[in-house]
Design a protein around this nucleic acid. Structure first.
Lengths: 216, 216
DNA sequence: TTGGTAATTTTGTGATCACAAAACACCCAT
DNA sequence: ATGGGTGTTTTGTGATCACAAAATTACCAA
């Protein structure tokens, strides 16, 4: 007689799958700020019990991707102006450094990949796909920073993106953009020229520009 | 008839108490790098079941304070040279900014508190108390950075301290120091003079100096 | 209609269990 | 002694449950 149905996943723990899915959703701005989540709801959606749902939630809370209310409920954070400025300052601090470290290793193949990503942004703009726009934008940055060979620094940058995710979607929903970010072009130019100074400047501008419009 | 003994904690969830205790222990270098922990062991020590122990562990893994092996076991991380240098670079990036932001708000009362903390370091050195030394050192920095009014930035700095904790204790156990860090005196002097440039420089030196000796 | 209170439902927490896999210990054959 | 294989123990995982507290709804009186 079967007492307990065996539901252990063979590869990659269940909580990890849930974690990754939620993380991507948050980072790409697919959840509005202040949106509440329930453990049972998460579990139901992913076909797991509350336990893995709780672990995934806790992990995201630890990364600042979710806000934990005093009663234990989790929701997407609603960032204050001060918090947004602080996170933008962190981007402005970390990302130029990552870019500078990537510069000596950025060969033509990488630059071409970046240009290709950058071109795909136009499609997202045409389709008014805010989430897709954010995803490609982050892919552009991550692709460059991966070359920096600085995993801890990159992880920290991603944590900041994660915290900004829900708020970001609001921004891109608001502004009606018609062309890919100007700063990306500057970044590509600096990479081609091998000019560290203007690269750091362009990255810094790119990291802070959009956030300025986020002020409520 | 009592089916299940009620053991819910009235204030502050159990997992949070476990998390805080472990976090402090790790950050202060009370656990050697590579030390393995078991969920049942943690639970037993704190008088809770595996569930809160697991949550606390997961949270610490998310912060980089613990390493999660492929089999799910957690242990204190053993940092490679590259990782140490990267974390030191992050300190060198973040902490001068925090200090600079604290500077305009650093009045005499704060500077006196910092001097008092700095003086207590000598006692720890005399007693060869590595953990106490680390704790006071971090208290010095945190006390200053709290004035920066930048919680996200401070949290990020603390995360780095946390990751360096176990490795740090090894360092301070190795070197036989006889006096409080020279850079702390420079920091205090720069604060009194209101000189942002030399303050950032002194903080940067303090953040990177010790780590240089950590190379295996 | 409105305000508040009671009943009900929703939700997170921590304990416990069955299970699988990993780690470990033991033992014998070479 | 040593290597390999076998059995035992340790350990993490996810499901489930009872419970408390929070949130929501229902309802009634003014």
């Amino acid at each position: 007689m079967l007492i307990q149905s065996k539901a252990t996943e063979p590869t990659g723990a269940a909580h990890d799958r849930v974690y990754r899915a939620l993380r991507a959703r948050i980072m790409h701005g697919e959840i509005d700020p202040g949106q509440a989540l329930t453990l049972r709801g998460i579990g139901k959606e992913f076909g797991v019990s509350m336990t893995p749902a709780r672990e995934a939630g806790r992990r995201l809370v630890a990364e600042g991707a979710l806000f934990l209310s005093s009663s234990g409920r989790v929701s997407t954070p609603e960032l204050s102006n001060e918090r947004i400025e602080e996170l933008a300052a962190l981007r402005a601090l970390l990302e130029p450094e990552l870019a500078a470290r990537a510069l000596p290793r950025a060969h033509m193949a990488l630059i071409e990949r970046l240009e290709e990503i950058n071109n795909r942004v136009s499609g997202m703009i045409a389709r008014q796909d805010a989430s897709g726009y954010i995803r490609l934008n982050l892919e552009f940055h991550r692709t460059l920073y991966l070359r920096a060979q600085a995993p801890a620094m990159l992880a920290m940058a991603e944590t900041i993106w994660l915290q900004l995710g829900p708020t970001m979607s609001k921004l891109y929903g608001r502004l009606r953009r018609t062309e890919p970010p100007r700063n990306h072009k500057l970044i590509l130019a600096a990479l081609k020229a091998g000019d560290e100074g203007s690269l750091k400047l362009a990255v810094r501008s790119d990291a802070t520009q959009g956030l300025r419009m986020l002020k409520v």
